[in-house]
């Protein structure tokens, strides 16, 4: 074991989508969080192009590892273990990270942990707020996923409560941004515009909130179409589109459903703790409304800072560190990537 105060020194690698992330932690302490994003290369396509992302990961990997090591003041041979996202995500992109992690682990003679991306989004909060409260409900929202999880033990016992049945929340932000003529990715633009608009201006629908609907599942596809129809009607009439009001009202519809269902999940499962994660958890309105509703319902809310909500290597390293502490066996040298890795598999077994 390394001499670093705090716990095992873990290097984490994340390549499930368009961010090449390399993070280094010592136990619960964040030492480095280097991210190279290919997002600008995807902007003109209006969405992440898997092959473009994969090519960018290959180019960025070694320089990003160097950057992380320099930031942490360590060399790769100092680390106790290497963790890598094994899924879910884009297969070709995941495989670049898995190949790199495996090669570093082999060359340095260190154990390798193939970990679940969703669990890593939950685990990352230890770097900011210390040990995870368990059991807890976790709401994970991003461009690729929207799920409610029951986390009894982050290193091995996660139960999915519900997830989106169509678009992910972040995907809805991207699509609505396109309708409003905003660049990809849409989340930050809508967040900014919404500050100047009224969330009550337009009553957009709240998907799957009827009494007979699945209580913990989400649906954002109908909302996205409703926004498009509303905007198109004004455009056809030659009326100006109140972009800020549309952004604010759309955003409110999304975060209202997300927070209402998360709070309900906590109440019905008897949990006192709610953890937020994923790129959409960087949204200022989601953070604010989650805060308000958690307080109103006597829940303790944990949300990492926005930079740790989006995809990064530190979250993978954080989960790796918890797995090492829990004595979970490392993955085998035949580790692959699984684009649909279920959240019930926190780490890929030996």
């Amino acid at each position: 074991m390394s001499e670093y105060p705090g716990g095992p020194l873990i290097l984490g690698i994340e390549t499930s989508c368009d961010e090449t992330g390399v993070g280094i932690v010592a136990g619960h302490r964040l030492l480095a969080d280097a991210v190279a994003s290919s997002v600008t290369e995807h902007a003109r396509f209006g969405g992440v192009v898997p092959e473009v992302a994969s090519r960018a990961h290959l180019e960025a990997m070694v320089p990003t590892v160097h950057r992380a090591c320099a930031e942490a003041g360590v060399t790769p041979s100092d680390v106790d273990a290497i963790a890598v996202t094994a899924g879910p995500g884009l297969t070709g992109a995941l495989l670049v990270g898995v190949a790199a992690a495996k090669a570093y682990a082999l060359a340095l003679g260190k154990p390798l942990y193939g970990v679940n991306h969703l669990a890593a989004h939950v685990a990352v909060d230890i770097l900011e707020h210390g040990p995870l409260p368990q059991p807890a409900v976790a709401l994970l929202v991003s461009g690729g996923h929207s799920s409610l999880l029951r986390v009894d033990d982050i290193t091995g016992s996660i139960t999915p409560l519900g997830s989106t049945i169509d678009d992910a929340a972040g995907e809805a932000f991207d699509k609505v941004a396109r309708v409003l003529g905003l660049p990809f990715p849409g989340g930050p633009h809508i967040d900014r515009l919404a500050c100047a608009g009224s969330a009550e201006a337009i009553a957009f629908p709240r998907g799957l909130t009827g009494p007979r609907d699945a209580p913990y599942n989400f649906s954002f596809s109908g909302l996205k179409s409703a926004v498009a129809r509303w905007v198109e009607r004004l455009e056809r009439d030659g009326s100006p589109v109140p972009v800020a009001d549309v952004a604010a009202s759309f955003q409110e519809a999304v975060v209202d459903v997300l927070t209402a269902k998360a709070v309900r999940a906590c109440r019905e499962t008897g949990m006192e703790h709610l953890i937020l994660g994923g790129g959409v958890a960087a949204n200022s309105r989601l953070r604010a409304l989650a805060e308000t509703r958690a307080a109103a319902n006597g829940l303790l809310l944990r949300v990492p800072r926005p930079g740790l909500c989006t995809d990064n290597g530190a979250m993978v390293a954080a989960l790796g560190s918890l797995l090492v502490d829990a004595g979970v066996p490392a993955s085998s040298e035949e580790l692959g990537a699984d684009s649909t890795l279920p959240v019930t598999l926190v780490s890929v077994p030996a």
């Binding site: 290959l58 041979s77 670049v96 190949a99 790199a100 570093y104």
Partner: peptide, 17 residues
């Protein structure tokens, strides 16, 4: 592409380490 990158990434990371 996907298979090719596995070998190139492996070689680059091994050599770096």
């Amino acid at each position: 592409f996907t298979g090719l990158r596995v070998g190139v990434m492996t070689a680059a990371a091994l050599a770096d380490a």
